[in-house]
């Protein structure tokens, strides 16, 4: 086997695709030819070095970055709807929570308002219910009527 022929077989030799007879022939040549052996070692080392190069890892938000780009370029037709939905969902949720909170406060405060007669009788005035009003031992005042949650005294 001549040197050129031997070097042309390096690719198949490395891939282990050489027919057995040809492989023996090449190996015999490499044993007896220091130049070709050196060339083979350098060739093999080069391929091994390239194959050992590290893998570059994508960033964690890679998918989201692409989706955002598609969303922008398609004017929200693709990958834009979900964000809009999320935003509107959050907004509607917030408004509903505030609404129910206000409604609850309004109803709760209205239920506890009691109409208390003025000292002079006749007219009445509204005021909050206080726990000490009846328990204080002072002159007892009869409420003339209850506006909510009660009945007229008979």
């Amino acid at each position: 086997m001549d040197h050129e022929r031997a070097r042309s077989l390096f690719i198949e030799y490395r891939d282990e695709e050489l027919a057995q007879e040809l492989r023996f022939e090449l190996e015999e040549h490499l044993r007896t030819c220091p130049d070709c052996r050196r060339d083979w070692e350098a060739y093999n080392e080069t391929v091994t070095g390239v194959s050992a190069l590290g893998r570059v890892k994508p960033p964690r938000d890679f998918v989201q970055k692409i989706e955002r780009k598609i969303g922008r370029r398609s004017a929200g037709r693709f990958f834009g709807a979900r964000n809009e939905f999320n935003l509107s969902f959050a907004l509607v949720s917030f408004v509903l929570i505030v609404f129910f909170l206000l409604a609850y406060l309004f109803i709760a405060s209205g239920r506890e308002v009691r109409v208390i007669p003025r000292a002079g009788g006749g007219d009445t005035e509204a005021g909050p219910v206080t726990g000490g009003d009846t328990a204080s031992g002072g002159p007892r005042r009869e409420p003339s009527r209850l506006e909510e949650g009660g009945t007229e005294p008979r």
Binding site: V56, K57, P58, P59, F62, V63, I66
Partner: peptide
């Protein structure tokens, strides 16, 4: 496919930021 594509592009271009940008364009 993000890892093989990004790695392929990085080895072809030799610049991480360019490769990442190009990988996004490939998927688009």
């Amino acid at each position: 496919y993000q890892e093989p594509v990004l790695n392929f592009l990085y080895r072809m271009i030799g610049n991480r930021l360019e490769a990442e940008d190009l990988a996004q364009e490939v998927f688009i």
